[in-house]
């Protein structure tokens, strides 16, 4: 039998199933299978969105309508509560809040949709063997497609803002914008990594998902979205870096609002949190995923 021990799981031909509870399954075949079935995750997210908007009257228009309404709410907040749009500062604050909020919501929808993806995928999990991480991955793809339409909304707000207040500091175009794909990728990877943690927790504790909504709100207030990263000085700045989304959100603010490159510290923070969440979340999830079928 010695020739069979190295055979990968999920491979189409010879498969060997052996005990490896609470430790990782062979990673190379796992990742290969994950990659092979990426079309499944993509279609699953596409179909989930299709199902979600199928019955609603506005359908996919909600994808634009949602951020637009949010922009209006915060426009009111900035004009009414913070003393009006008369100064250039008003439009800058609004732009900062909007891009921060859209970025934060991208991470939030990765995490909250990912958290329930396993418990909601019960039938699929009981019926077929496939790398379970595909389910939270599919939620991350959905979150990305929901995030994309928010960018034109932001750009529209900024264009109108610059037209009304030509002297605003928000840049029209700068080369720092080349950092945007990198920042978005970091948000997606961090969100996916954390969704793996919460998806696993939600299998064991079914109220994780409920707690998560409060947790996410507190997290939003602790993140530089409704306030500016510059408001923190000295050791308070560590708050930015112990927050998994702190570095990406302050880079977002630097690039979009100030038109400057992220600082080296922020870049290190972005990469560290993205890789850290992916590795920790991946280990936590994959080492337990074969337990899911008996707990669903």
């Amino acid at each position: 039998m010695s020739n069979t021990t190295a055979n990968p799981e999920f491979s189409p031909n010879l498969q060997v199933f052996e005990p490896h509870k609470a430790s990782l399954p062979p990673l190379v075949p796992y990742l290969k299978e994950f990659w092979k079935r990426r079309a499944f995750a993509i279609e699953l997210s596409r179909f989930a969105d299709k199902a979600e908007y199928l019955d609603s009257k506005f359908g996919k228009v909600w994808l634009i309508l949602n951020p637009l309404l949010l922009a209006m709410i915060y426009f009111l907040l900035v004009t009414v509560l913070r003393g009006g749009m008369k100064s250039n500062q008003g439009i800058t604050t609004l732009a900062h809040i909007l891009i921060g909020l859209f970025t934060f919501y991208f991470a939030q929808s990765c995490i909250s949709a990912g958290a329930t993806s396993i418990t909601a995928g019960g039938r699929l999990i009981l019926n077929q063997a496939f790398p379970r991480a595909l389910l939270p991955f599919s939620s991350t793809i959905s979150a990305f497609y929901q995030f994309l339409p928010t960018l034109p909304v932001y750009i529209a707000v900024v264009v109108i803002g610059k037209w009304v207040f030509p002297s605003t500091q928000i840049p029209g175009f700068t080369w720092s914008y080349l950092w945007i794909p990198f920042i978005i990728a970091c948000v997606g990877i961090t969100g996916f990594g954390l969704s793996l943690v919460f998806a696993t927790m939600n299998v064991y504790f079914r109220d994780t998902n409920k707690l998560l909504s409060y947790f996410m709100r507190i997290w939003l207030y602790a993140s530089p979205v409704l306030w500016l990263p510059e408001m923190l000085h000295g050791w308070h700045r560590t708050i930015l870096f112990i927050n998994p989304l702190g570095p990406v959100l302050s880079s977002t603010s630097n690039v979009w609002i100030k038109g400057i490159n992220p600082t080296p510290g922020e870049l290190v923070g972005c990469i560290a949190w993205a890789l850290g969440s992916l590795l920790i979340g991946g280990y936590f999830f994959i080492s337990r995923e074969r337990d899911f079928a008996v707990r669903i």
């Binding site: 031909n13 052996e18 699953l44």
Partner: peptide, 27 residues
Amino acid sequence: GILPPTEGRIIVNGKISTLLALGVGFN
């Protein structure tokens, strides 16, 4: 391959298709 063995080993030679729970991806 859905549930891991606690002890022992299963060797399967071939492609598996299952009907073990209704709703094979059914939304």
